[in-house]
Amino acid sequence: MNILKKICKTIVNILLVLIFVTPFYWMFLTAFKTISQTIQMPPLFYVLDPQWSNFSQVFEKIPLLHMFKNSVLISAGILLCQAITVIPAAYAFARYKFAGSKVLFGLTLITMMIPSQLIFLPVYLLLSKLGLINTYASMILPSACSAFAIFMLRQTFMQIPEELVEAARLDKASELKIMLKIMLPIARPTVTTLALLTFISSWNDYFWPLVLTTNDTVRTLPLGISMLKAVDGAVMPYHIIMAGNVLLVIPIIIAFICAQKQIIQAFTYVGEK
C-alpha cells in the first residue's frame, strides 16, 4: 500500500515536471537548432552542434541592445517614480487624519480595479495630445504610481507602534526624518517586495509599449522579440524567435533561481493581505 502510494506520487511529480518544464526546455533547444532541425520529424530532443548564429541573427533583425537599454531605463524610471509617489502617500494615509482622506483613499483603491487594458485608448490620446508619444516619459508616466503599492505600504506603516514616532517627535526629529530614518527602515521588507513585483511586471510588460509607440525609439525587449515573428519565407523562423525568447527569459529565470525564496515570499505576502 505504502509502496503503491509512493509510485503514484512519483508519477504525478514526473508529470508535473513534464508539463511545466518541457515547454521551457523546448524553447532552449529550439534556440540552438538549425531551421531544418526545427521541422525535422520525429523531432530531435538534443542538439550536438548548437547554432550560436541564431542569436547573432536576432541582433541583425532587431536593435536588441538599444531595446535592452530601453527596458532597463524604463524599468528603473518606473521604480524611481513609484518610490517618489508611493512612499509619501502611503505614509500620509497611514499617519495623518485629514479632511477627505477617506474619500481620496477610497478613490485610490478604486483605481486598483481598473486595468490598463481598459483605459489605453484615452491614455494614448492624452499622451499624443501632450506630444509625448515615442518618449521615455510616455512609457513611464502611466505606471509612475501604483495604488496597490500605496495600499500595501500603508498597511505596513499602520502596524508600526505609535510610541516609536512619539519618541522621535520628543527628540524634535523632523517629519521627513521620521519617515526616512524610522518608518522606512522598518518597512524595508515590504518596500523590497513591492520593488521586486514592480520590476518583474515592467520588465515583462508588452502592452504599454505596444499601444504607446509607433517606432523603435523607446520600444522595449518584449516588443522587439514579438517583432521577430515577421516571416521571410513560408515557415515561421522558430529557431530565431526562440533565440530571442531565451534572451528575454534568461534574466528572469536566473533571478528566480538565485532568489526563489524571496520572489515566492513576495508573491505570497501580497496574496495574504
Binding site: 515547454p23 521551457f24 523546448w26 524553447m27 518583474i200 520588465w203 515583462n204 508588452y206 518584449p222 516588443l223 522579440i225 514579438s226 515573428k229 524567435i241 526562440m242 525568447n245 528575454l248 527569459v249 528572469i252 529565470i253 528566480f256 520572489i263 508573491f267
Partner: peptide
C-alpha cells in the same frame, strides 16, 4: 507566472 506573456505565447 513571472515569464513575459510574449515568451509564453511564442513557446
Amino acid at each position: 507566472h513571472i515569464v513575459s506573456l510574449v515568451s509564453i505565447s511564442f513557446i
